Amino acid sequence: MTAPQGTWHEACALDAVKEGEPLGLEIAGAQLAIYRVGADFFATGNICSHAEAMLSDGLLDGYEIECPLHNGRFDIRSGEALTSPVEIDIPTYPVRIEGDRLQVYLPGE
């Protein structure tokens, strides 16, 4: 049995992702939020698992994104639900830098 294959997708220019300002994107039909913390980049699903708000509209504080509706928080490194009312983790995706562009790996394609 082999692991499901995925694909690297072009996400955006590195300078499109500002420190502390989540960027919402749709890539290959998936709603993603892209984050920059210092020199590091992260990608998660963009939909809150509690009330389907766009996390890219939320507040990024360090490695935590706060949902704009009910203030639940997720760790952008692991997708872990950290505070009430969120209880279900969000997906995270590997990222890589190619030149001045950011790419995101989406599984199962």
Rank of each mutant, 00 (worst) to 15 (best):
I88T: 15
G79H: 08
E66S: 14
S49F: 03
E98N: 04
L82M: 14
D61L: 14
G99M: 00
M54W: 05
G72K: 06
E52H: 09
D61S: 15
D89C: 10
E52T: 10
A33F: 09
I97C: 04
I76A: 05
L55Y: 03
E10W: 01
M54L: 12
R101E: 13
A51R: 10
R73K: 15
I88S: 11
I97F: 02
D75S: 08
R77P: 02
Q31S: 12
G79M: 13
Q103S: 04
P94H: 02
R36Q: 11
C67D: 08
S78W: 11
V95Y: 02
D89P: 13
D57H: 14
G79T: 13
V37N: 13
A43V: 05
H50I: 11
Q31A: 15
G58Y: 13
L69F: 15
L82T: 10
S56W: 03
Y63A: 08
D100H: 02
L60V: 14
E109M: 10
L55S: 04
D75N: 15
T83E: 14
M1F: 13
Q5K: 15
M54F: 12
M1P: 08
G38A: 12
L55W: 06
G99I: 01
P107L: 14
K18M: 15
G6R: 07
L82R: 10
A43H: 02
S78V: 14
